[in-house]
């Protein structure tokens, strides 16, 4: 546990040193969302109908964009190799990295999402659903994305590749996440949706760290 906290603290410190890593995904999130009214229509009726989907797609892309760098810095300066040979359990280390990534991407996205929701005229009943679904859904995105990042970290052209690997895996989270917001906006109960998102999250927390650790071992030793 102490090791976990130390690893988490180290990663967060590194992130806070380059603040751009926090700002960039958020700016990206806002810009993608803005493209829809510009590209399709600024009609409030239309926007409030597509709000759930657009916000979720934008959040998903922002997560995907930032997850690519989750192991890259450590890989390039060699500390990832050190971590793999260190006696500390790799699973805990991986989990700490994913959580720190989530804190600077998914968590911040959930916090600023009401701003975008307002610009999209989301009915006020949907705000809680939006924040809760993002809070429950984006950790899964970080976990799945970290598998892709682990597999591609040793490759020079990882950028496009990681989206090919990870986007299909993001589909269930997108469907249930956007579904939660739609149900919430219509004033329907959302507990069932949140339970599904939570189940997917628990499932990924149990399995994804093994896949990430295995992926890192393959990437570092190649």
């Amino acid at each position: 546990m102490r090791f976990f906290l130390a690893a988490l603290k180290r990663d967060l410190l590194l992130v806070f040193r380059h603040r751009n890593d926090i700002i960039n995904p958020l700016a990206f999130f806002l810009m993608v969302a803005v493209l829809f009214p510009l590209g399709v229509s600024p009609d409030p009726a239309f926007l409030s109908e597509v709000a759930a989907g657009v916000i979720w797609v934008a959040a998903l892309l922002a997560c995907l964009l930032s997850v690519d760098g989750i192991f890259r810095g450590d890989y390039e300066d060699g500390s990832l190799e050190q971590m793999l040979v260190s006696p500390e359990p790799l699973l805990i280390l991986v989990l700490a990295k994913v959580i720190s990534h989530w804190l600077v991407s998914g968590f911040c996205l959930a916090i600023i999402s009401p701003l975008v929701a307002m610009m999209f005229f989301l009915p006020s009943e949907g705000y809680l659903a939006l924040i809760l679904s993002l809070l429950l859904g984006t950790p899964t995105l970080s976990l799945m994305g970290a598998i892709g990042a682990g597999l591609t970290v040793g490759l020079r052209r990882g950028g496009v590749l990681i989206s090919l690997l990870v986007l299909p895996l993001y589909i269930p989270v997108l469907i249930f996440g956007a579904g939660t917001v739609q149900a919430g906006a219509m004033g329907l109960p959302i507990q069932g949706y949140l339970a599904l998102l939570g189940a997917i999250l628990v499932f990924s927390i149990m399995l994804a760290p093994f896949a990430i650790a295995a992926a890192l071992k393959v990437s570092v030793r190649s």
């Binding site: 799945m144 598998i147 589909i171």
Partner: peptide, 17 residues
């Protein structure tokens, strides 16, 4: 590794779709 991750996800994807 990737195909195993995909295999585990296929039922979830099918169900969600």
């Amino acid at each position: 590794i990737l195909s195993l991750v995909g295999l585990v996800n296929i039922p979830i994807i099918k169900y969600s779709v």
